Simulated assay, not measured.
Amino acid sequence: MTGLAYQCTPLHPSLPPLSPQCLSPLPSFHITDPPPPPLSLFPGVFCFSELSFIIEPSDITVISKDPVVLDCVAHGQPPIVIGWLRNGVGLAESERLRFLSNGSLYILEARRDGEGSDGGFYQCLSQNKYGAILSQRSRLTIANISPFVVQPVPLEVTEGSVARFTCQVTSNPPATITWELDQSTLPLETDRITVLPNGALQIQNVQLEDAGKYRCVATNIGNRVKSRKATLSVINQGVCVCFQLRLWVDLFKSNQIKCIYIALRS
């Protein structure tokens, strides 16, 4: 019975050309013959397992001094060596930075400030004797929030008009802005009261009961800061007090109505 011949071919375009020994025909075997020995026993022939990532690191935001774990698990022909890069520069293990047995990176305490900050872009480098692959970039963000750059200022508006308070902080990740009235959280997104995309508080159709002390509150995963208080004063539109004057001129009777607006401050 005619035997079957085998020939190896490269499995990945990045591999170097195969040696002439690998390209030469291999011995034929008949079905009745004993099973052929493993390919690895043939000179110049080996079994290749391409490297790939099962788990890659992903973006993460943490609080300063919190521990951090960036996951990385690779698959391929062992032994596989895992290394890590931050902003394109290789990392070395230390008391704070450890490469775990499963390939993950462990940071004992995340640092936020100065040159020693742990924030940045991380990549996992996986290598075996056949090559190396680099994971996707993951961003490690150390949460922070600054004091207020813009503070709300006192306002004096007329009843029925529009009042708008503004505030601003520098925050990473972006802060959520809420507002307080007389130290109580203000209900937002009502028919009259809303927080604009830039964090400003807008009150439409201002009423006398809207008067008071307002404060901006900025919150993210790392901290919570409050602005100075700003007073909203509401001026009453006025009360019309009417009286009638009877004027007699040359037997001609005339009525004239006078109206005086008295402004009342809240």
Score class of each variant (00 low, 15 high):
Met1Lys: 04
Gly3Thr: 08
Gly3Cys: 09
Leu4Lys: 03
Leu4Trp: 04
Tyr6Cys: 04
Tyr6Gly: 04
Gln7Pro: 00
Pro10Gln: 11
His12Ala: 12
Pro17Leu: 08
Ser19Pro: 08
Ser19Asn: 07
Gln21Pro: 00
Gln21Arg: 12
Leu23Trp: 04
Leu23Cys: 06
Ser24His: 04
Ser24Pro: 00
Thr32Gly: 12
Thr32Asp: 14
Asp33Val: 01
Pro34Met: 01
Pro36Trp: 00
Pro38Asp: 11
Ser40Trp: 02
Phe42Lys: 03
Val45Glu: 07
Phe46Trp: 09
Phe48Asp: 00
Ser49Asp: 05
Glu50Ala: 08
Ser52Tyr: 03
Ser52Trp: 04
Ser52Gly: 07
Ile54Arg: 05
Ser58Pro: 04
Asp59Val: 01
Ile60Pro: 00
Thr61Gly: 00
Thr61Tyr: 03
Val62Leu: 10
Ile63Gln: 08
Ile63Gly: 03
Ser64Asn: 08
Ser64Gly: 02
Asp66Lys: 13
Pro67Cys: 12
Pro67Thr: 14
Val68Glu: 02
Val68Ile: 05
Asp71Glu: 14
Cys72Thr: 02
Ala74Ile: 14
Gly76Asp: 13
Val81Glu: 07
Ile82Asp: 04
Leu85Trp: 05
Arg86Glu: 11
Leu91Ser: 01
Leu91Cys: 02
Ser94Leu: 03
Arg98Val: 15
Phe99Tyr: 07
Ile107Pro: 06
Leu108Phe: 14
Glu109Leu: 10
Glu109Val: 08
Ala110Trp: 13
Arg111Ile: 06
Arg112Lys: 14
Asp113Glu: 08
Glu115Gln: 14
Gly119Leu: 14
Gly120Cys: 13
Gly120Arg: 09
Phe121Leu: 09
Ser126Cys: 15
Gln127Leu: 12
Asn128Glu: 14
Lys129Ile: 14
Tyr130Glu: 15
Gly131Leu: 01
Ile133Arg: 04
Gln136Lys: 10
Ser138Asn: 04
Ala143Gly: 00
Asn144Ile: 13
Ile145Asp: 00
Ser146His: 05
Val149Ser: 08
Val150Ile: 14
Gln151Val: 08
Leu155Met: 05
Leu155Val: 14
Glu159Ser: 15
Phe165Thr: 05
Thr166His: 02
Gln168Asn: 09
Val169Leu: 13
Val169Gln: 10
Thr170Ser: 05
Thr170Val: 09
Thr170Lys: 06
Ser171Arg: 10
Ser171Glu: 06
Ser171Thr: 05
Ala175Glu: 02
Ala175Ile: 02
Ala175Thr: 01
Ile177Val: 11
Ile177Ala: 05
Trp179Arg: 12
Glu180Ile: 01
Glu189Ser: 10
Thr190Gly: 13
Asp191Lys: 07
Ile193Lys: 15
Leu196Met: 15
Pro197Arg: 03
Leu201Gln: 03
Leu201Ala: 07
Gln202Phe: 00
Gln204Ser: 06
Val206Gly: 14
Val206Arg: 07
Gln207Asp: 08
Gly212Cys: 09
Lys213Val: 03
Tyr214Ser: 01
Arg215Thr: 15
Cys216Glu: 09
Ala218Met: 03
Ala218Trp: 02
Gly222Val: 10
Asn223Ile: 06
Ser227Phe: 06
Arg228His: 02
Thr231Glu: 12
Val234Thr: 01
Ile235Cys: 09
Val249Lys: 04
Asp250Glu: 03
Ser254Gly: 00
Ser254Asp: 01
Gln256Met: 11
Ile257Phe: 09
Cys259Asp: 04
Arg265Thr: 07
Arg265Ile: 07
